[in-house]
Nucleic acid binder design. Structure first.
Lengths: 233, 233
DNA sequence: CAGTGGTCTAGACCACACA
DNA sequence: GTGTGGTCTAGACCACTGC
């Protein structure tokens, strides 16, 4: 009943996974080449190639250009993390998304931020603090710094009514980003915003966004205590 | 100097990204079909196909089988998270990996775990608590439950000298997993193990591992306060 | 019915690793 | 020099969508 009649590259991926599970190919060993597998399965080499390429993207095989394909040792798990817009995440859980601006100020960057955003020291940034809520319950407290050299139009944007992440995504849709995740105890002030107790643990997500080699923004999101970020391999 | 002479599908990806950045293709709009792009770039359709497929895997385009390719709206960022073995992570930071077993006990599963591991109520699990350290400093406190129905040989394994994750990876290399990440305040007892203060915030990673539809293990890792998990898009 | 993306094929050329 | 994986080509069939 659970059987699927896979064909083509999916079938080959499946079959190779079976052989791996059954230790027919051992960890670290070189498996047969594309030509050999193509002959064995009676398919074109391109089909085997796709199967092998995808398995190596999943971290299960390791391919080397002119040497061969090996079973990965010390397999690191590759999880695909989807980082949705906050609005999307909240609405897809069935709640109503709410937003409001807590603070807005032009400030010069603190030392730690100068390094992380590769700023010249004199630069002014736009500092925002915003609260995202789910059906009225505070959900995320966001501290954001926007590089006015890269995004000067931020100065005149209306962040009372527009969440800075969505505004930035519209202004510059194709940036790259670095993320970090950690945990912090809430300060008394932050706890108040999140309707939590001072000292409670908050899941922290930080993001630095780049346009080519120019920093765009630094954002630190403090999630309501109890929040879990989920993923699946 | 920074110029690269890309060719083939990489060139096409690059060029399409440029058009997206310059809003030549607008968010939500349908872009030209594979045949048209192949003609434009003077390449085979398979080459365009690969470029478009990869862009859609990156969440930048959305393809529908018999309808067309659109520019993704409300772009969710896709981050690739690599989850290394603890030993690997510690050693790659230049520190020496250390391990020791804190507790080992056969226990029946608590209620919350019965649900999450889809156990029958009567089942006994192996409960382990272990400490991972980096150059002598406590790094992660791990609480682990192993399903003895799926992995009976765990009962006789030597977890004094073998870290349960590595042992399990050897026993059953090709499992699937669910992850969650969150934050918790350390209990007095856990804090002591981690050489931290009670109440400090700890980054928590939980993992449930499955072999087909059988649960293998539940692990909860409490990281030393201050730890950050990094990733990049 | 025309056009789409998904997939496969049989062939090809390449640069390099390894012996 | 042989074999490897990486890539490309020109052609094909398919199932389905949207007209």
């Amino acid at each position: 009943s659970g059987l699927k009649a896979l064909s083509g590259y999916r079938f080959i991926k499946n079959e190779l996974m079976r052989r791996l599970r059954e230790q027919q190919y051992l960890a670290g060993a070189t498996i047969p080449g594309e030509v050999e597998l193509a002959a064995e399965f009676g398919v074109a080499r391109a089909t085997v190639n796709r199967a092998l390429r995808e398995l190596s993207e999943d971290g299960i095989l390791e391919r080397k250009r002119h040497s061969g394909t090996k079973v990965a040792t010390l397999r690191t798990r590759h999880a695909k993390l989807e980082i949705p817009l906050i609005r999307t995440e909240i609405e897809s859980s069935g709640a109503t998304y709410g937003y409001n601006l807590v603070a807005r100020e032009e400030r010069s960057a603190p030392d730690w931020l100068i390094k992380r955003l590769a700023l010249s020291e004199l630069q002014k940034l736009l500092y925002l603090q915003c609260l995202h809520s789910a059906s009225g319950q505070p959900h995320i407290l966001e501290c954001r710094w926007i590089n006015l050299k890269t995004v000067p139009q931020a100065l005149s944007a209306d962040f009372e009514n527009n969440n800075p992440n969505e505004w930035l995504v519209n202004q510059m849709p194709f940036t790259t980003a670095e993320f970090s995740f950690s945990a912090e105890c809430l300060s008394r002030k932050d706890a108040k915003h999140l309707n939590a107790k001072a000292g409670e643990a908050s899941f922290i997500a930080e993001r630095i966004t780049w346009l080519e080699s120019n920093s765009v923004t630094f954002a630190k999101m403090a999630f309501r205590p109890g929040y879990k970020m989920l993923t699946r391999i």
